[in-house]
């Protein structure tokens, strides 16, 4: 192993994990802006069901996405552990902020790069494209989400129509 590879391997990243239907999902902690308890949102007519609505985060209007519904899991009534994780994502040239409704926040981990494995193709359930990788932490499997893809796909894509673009 060359020296550069060694340094790469020994590096680790911090992740925030949260629980969704008894599984643990992780996002890069640097992407997390804020975590808040669930609060009522303003619905957006015509938006897909998983898009719960928008709310005001310090003067900004942020769309809120229910991850359970986004992944097609069974919905569950929001309770006192339900939280909204505000993350920022890269969308084309700009940054957008979105809130993810999850069952509960779990933990933060330092995950070494070598503990991260590419995600195997899965038969059913979660769209494998949403998953960036899998990691093993303290004997548990943690799913690292590709939020840039997840929150830019389908109806969430920012559609920009310029004057002559059609």
């Amino acid at each position: 192993m060359t020296e550069t590879e060694l340094t790469l391997c020994s590096e680790s990243k911090q992740f925030l994990t949260f629980v969704l239907a008894n599984e643990e999902y992780a996002v890069d902690i640097l992407r997390v802006q804020e975590i808040r308890g669930w609060m009522p949102v303003t619905r957006i007519p015509g938006a897909p069901g998983y898009m719960k609505g928008v709310l005001n985060l310090r003067g900004e209007i942020i769309p809120i996405i229910d991850l359970r519904e986004r992944f097609g899991f069974e919905t569950k009534a929001y309770n006192h552990t339900t939280v909204v994780v505000f993350v920022w994502i890269k969308s084309e040239e700009r940054q957008r902020s979105m809130g993810l409704v999850v069952d509960a926040v779990a933990d933060t981990y330092d995950i070494a790069n070598e503990a991260i494995n590419p995600a195997p193709l899965m038969g059913e359930g979660l769209d494998p494209k949403f998953i960036e990788a899998l990691a093993t932490v303290e004997g548990k499997m943690v799913i690292l989400l590709d939020i840039d893809y997840l929150l830019n796909a389908d109806a969430l894509a920012c559609t920009q129509t310029g004057y002559l673009n059609e």
């Binding site: 949102v41 957006i44 209007i61 957008r96 920012c158």
Partner: peptide
């Protein structure tokens, strides 16, 4: 559009005095 996208039927949104959108 800043964080979501254009929604048909709406110019945009505003924040009311109570913080609601």
């Amino acid at each position: 559009e800043t964080n979501y996208k254009r929604v048909d039927g709406f110019f945009g949104a505003t924040i009311l005095g109570n913080g609601q959108v």
